[in-house]
Write a protein that binds this DNA or RNA. Structure first.
Lengths: 140, 140
DNA sequence: GCTTGACCTAGAGTTAACTCTAGGGAATAA
DNA sequence: TTATTCCCTAGAGTTAACTCTAGGTCAAGC
């Protein structure tokens, strides 16, 4: 079976070797096997597992909680409910983040428009008498 | 003109008074005025400016860069281009974040499905022979 | 006049997630 | 066989963004 060194795995995942060792130290990578002399061997499936870990990180999950999930995985079917609930929670978290980003985008787009107009006019003063949308016409 | 104390402003913005003082210390709030004895007075427009600051933070912008933007604002029309470019950059950053969240959501939803099926069956073994979508059928 | 509670500053402490260094071992190339 | 280049661990250092403490000021109510 094909395996990868830590630096190959790091490159594939866009992480540093420091980060991978840190994850291992924190208990996130109990599945990564070693050679007799202690060198880590990353299997294809380990890379996939790491992608799931990165995915959980993107949802805003702290490493200690990801470690809990990894532990549940090695405890077998008795933890299926916990794991299911965890993913439902993550789903809700991502939905909330998407909503927040949408609101953020609206403000940013208003600002882009505000500065485009000001730049075309050569001065911010064009917005001085603008009452409608004055929330976005403030200096800051 | 109606003003708010630091604790009232904090409540409105869902921040702590520590955070607001920290922002001030970092140079994010040069517009907040003080009483003769040094107490901060938050105007309605200051609250609005802080909402923009929070918005920029949501886009992933570090406080030091937000401080640059705030400085540009007090330098007048000569910095209009910088500020416009900054918001265009922020827009691109938010778009990238949205894309990443979408990809994340797909993985999470697959996982939800995976665990729902396993939970209904009472065991993860139901996925053992599943070749299609095996990326999501891994233990981790 | 005195207590209470909110405000202030300076600066120390915390937390998460890395990031790096020192010191050492194994394998490969010349 | 020696140099190079990877790998390893333990543990120290870094960074961002708070978060809190100590010690003090000030204004309102009793």
């Amino acid at each position: 079976m094909k395996t990868f060194s830590i630096s190959e795995a790091a490159k594939q995942l866009n992480l540093t070797i420091y980060t991978l060792r840190y994850y291992d130290k924190e208990g996130l990578l109990p599945f990564v096997e070693r050679t007799a002399s202690g060198t880590r061997l990353f299997k294809e499936s380990d890379i996939e597992s790491l992608k799931v870990i990165e995915c959980l990180k993107t949802t805003g999950m702290p490493i200690k909680e990801i470690k809990n999930f990894i532990s549940w995985c090695s405890e077998g079917d008795t933890t299926l409910k916990q794991r299911y609930d965890m993913f439902l929670e993550r789903k809700a978290a991502v939905e909330a983040q998407m909503e927040e980003l949408k609101r953020t985008m609206e403000v940013i787009e208003h600002k882009c428009l505000y500065y485009k107009t000001a730049l075309d006019a050569g001065t911010e003063d064009v917005h001085k008498n603008n009452k409608i949308g004055s929330n976005f016409a403030s200096t800051y």
